[in-house]
Each structure stands twice: as structure tokens, then as C-alpha cells.
Design a protein around this nucleic acid. Structure first.
Lengths: 225, 225
DNA sequence: TTTTATATTTCGAGA
DNA sequence: TCTCGAAGTATAAAA
């Protein structure tokens, strides 16, 4: 890992064309040759960058200033960095990173709801998770208290795409005389207004899921007794 | 902008819970208090981070090791960094960045196709760009040589969502007796096989757009005479 | 390997 | 301010 603080101008040509005027920035050059150009603000996204695989060539512009050219031979993307002044430079051996361990995404939400389907609708019981169909698996297939089939689509954030997806499943499932009629529940930690409108219009119920409360139900250590 | 190279362990709690075991990494602390944790590989995305607005508090763990706590008071997100050893540290004044200038995304593609609708289908002429409907604007509304209406949806990458979107527009537009029948063209620089199958199944034509060729048509300086 | 779905997405435009 | 769509999206899982 090499860190460079420099006054530089950056030009990118690839899927799009982009230009950064001369200014002071931080350059991060990773072991795989990738380059990140960061300013002192914004989010985690660099102003400009080059993804691996790529190669960095250090050269000199016509006027004698240092110039780096980073290219991806496959996609023909090019990042050109022209230097006015280098303020700081250092190189560090980081070694291989053991990587990030995550918890709390959609898969976990699905597990929790599979264990507690009744939180979605009274009397709901699980038939199976990842119920297979020709166009992909339905997150949860359940039965309600009357024995009728209920397909559940789970998202962390409920948007219009999820409703479309569930609609396709329901259309297919309702062609099966052994299952029909199948109704749908769209479950998410948060449901966008447009998605709710579309779902309601199609007769699909919406369920907002409280992740922390579910986890509390699931984990006995969270209970008082 | 502050740069720190250190052997550290990182824990995040917020929308999800994530953990990074002790290892050597680069920390970037921006002027707005945001923190990025980078390893020597991967893409431009940090292993872990904290987005602004947030505040960094430098403290000491029970065992005397330095420990930073970065918190977002609004969302209650917390990033905790525990240090074993700091290998390098430097601070730099970057000033405000003038920002990135872009060119070549969907908007430009829409402008080019609006100028040259006949490249999508023979005899096609533009009625208007961003044709308004109750569920959003249609990218291009055109007429073919027979005077029939044609709705065009433009994407850089043609995927299934775009076909769904155009389908909704067509369904709505075809309810208008003054317009109907309206057919659809799905235009993109690249169309995914699944999207093409779905479009074809619904009677929607697919058009793969050559961005460079279009730009050549549009810009006289690209012509030989 | 290619496709599909998610993301602590981030970012920008419009209402 | 909020909502919605696009991204040089990145990333991981599934086919």
C-alpha cells in the first residue's frame, strides 16, 4: 500500500469520461495496482479510481511534470494523473486482511420470520423456506388458519421491484390448482410508499418487520425469564 | 485529512453488525469526521467505514490500548477501533475539492437518440422527450412511418427492470384511445438475455445502441468531411 | 463462468 | 426535505 498526497489533475476515460481539475488530494495505490483518488469529504466513494486488474506506469508529461497512467488492458479504461507537486509519500506492508464478518442481512431476516411466521399474519404457519418455482424460489411458503396458501416475499427495504417479483410468483403459483388460491404478503423492515401503493392495488398485504423485536423472540437470552 | 497506518481491530454496529479481526490497515479520517478503513486490496469500497455526519472520540480501552469511537448521534451507528500498534500517522490540509465533471451517462444517450430516432427503427420520428404519464415520464415518445405511436425506454444496461417499467408505461398508454395502439422499443448499450426474452415475449422490440457511432453522427468534428 | 439479488450502497435530480 | 432512479455501482450467492 502506497499513500501519496499531491496536487494533481485526474482524467478518466472508459464507460464515461470524467475530469478532475488541479487540486490537492490523497492517492491510495493498493498492492493489486488499483488506484483511489480521495478528497477531504464526501462518502467512502473516491472522486475517481481504477479498479483491478490494472497496471500503473509512472512517466513524465511533455512539460516535464510527473504523470501516471493507469490502464485496464481488458476494458481499455484509462486513468491519467498529472502532478504539480507531491506533498507526502509513504509505502506500507499491510499483509493479507482476514476479512469482514457480517450479521443482520436479509438471510437472517428470513430465518427469523421462518421461525415466527405468525408475526406476519395471525395463525400463519410455515410450509417451507425457499419454496422452489420455475422462475425462482419463493422466500416463505405458508398456510393461514383456513389452510389457504400464502407466499411471502422478504426484503430489507421494500421497493417496487419486490412487489413485481412477488406478483410474478403469485401469477405462477395461482396456475397450480393444488395451491390456488394463493395470496401474498410483502414483508420488509421498511416499505416505500410507492411499493405499498402497488402492493395494495394488487391485493398483496404489506408487513413491516421489527428486526430487533424478532431477534428478541428468537434469542432466549434477551428474555427476562 | 488524517492518514493512519495501524494494526487494529474494528467493530461496527448499526444497520448491521460487523467485525474485523486484528490486522494492519490504513485509516483515512476526513475533515467532516468520517472514517474509512482500507485493506491492501479489494475495490474502492473500504472494509468498514462511518459516513458523515459523525464524531470521532479518541479514548483508551480498559487494558490501556488506544481506542477510537466514531458515532452518528442520529442513527446511533457506532464504529469502534481498537489499536495494537500505530505504524504511521500524518495530517494534511487538502482544501475544498473543485469536484468531478462527468459525461456519457444515460442522459446523454437520451439526447443522442432524441436527435437520431431513426437509428432505433426505420422512419421513426420524435414526438417528445420525457413524455409525461401518471406513473412517470416515458424517455422518448415517437411515431413510426405509419403514424403509429412508439414508446422508447432507454437504459445504459438493459435489464429485466427496464422491461417491467416499459410494460407499465405501455399498459397505461394503450388505455388512451387517442394514442393506442402504442408499441414499445427497449433501447440500451447492452441488453441482458433475460431482459431480451421477457421483452420479446411481451412484443417489445429490443435495440442495441452504439454510443460511439451515435456520438459520431452527432458531432461534425468526428466526420471526415 | 455467468447471472441474479443485495447493499451500512452512494449520488444526483425533482417534487 | 423526501423520494426515486442510476451507478465506471461493488459484492456475494446461485445457476
Amino acid at each position: 500500500m502506497r499513500l501519496v498526497v499531491a496536487t494533481c489533475q485526474v482524467d478518466y476515460a472508459g464507460r464515461l469520461t470524467a475530469h478532475l481539475p488541479m487540486a490537492t488530494r490523497v492517492l491510495m495505490i493498493k498492492a493489486d495496482g488499483s488506484v483511489l483518488v480521495h478528497s477531504d469529504g464526501g462518502s467512502y466513494k473516491p472522486l475517481n479510481w481504477m479498479s483491478p486488474p490494472c497496471t500503473l506506469r509512472e512517466g513524465t508529461a511533455d512539460d516535464g511534470r510527473p504523470e501516471w497512467t493507469v490502464t485496464n488492458p481488458k476494458t481499455d479504461d484509462t486513468l491519467r494523473i498529472l502532478f504539480d507537486e507531491i506533498h507526502h509519500e509513504s509505502t506500507h506492508d499491510l499483509g493479507v486482511d482476514p476479512g469482514l464478518q457480517k450479521d443482520g442481512v436479509e438471510k437472517h431476516l428470513q430465518e427469523l420470520l421462518a421461525d415466527h411466521p405468525a408475526t406476519l399474519a395471525p395463525g400463519l404457519t410455515l410450509v417451507r423456506r425457499e419454496y422452489p418455482t420455475a422462475i425462482g424460489p419463493v422466500d416463505l411458503m405458508c398456510r393461514d388458519e383456513t389452510g389457504a396458501s400464502v407466499a411471502v416475499e422478504i426484503k430489507r427495504r421494500g421497493e417496487i421491484d419486490g412487489v413485481e417479483q412477488l406478483t410474478r410468483y403469485l401469477e405462477l403459483l395461482n396456475r397450480d390448482p393444488l395451491l390456488a388460491p394463493v395470496r401474498g404478503i410483502f414483508a420488509a423492515q421498511e416499505i416505500k410508499p410507492q411499493a405499498r401503493v402497488l402492493a395494495t392495488d394488487r391485493g398483496i398485504a404489506c408487513a413491516v418487520v421489527d428486526y430487533d423485536a424478532l431477534r428478541g423472540l428468537d434469542d432466549p437470552s434477551h428474555r427476562l425469564f
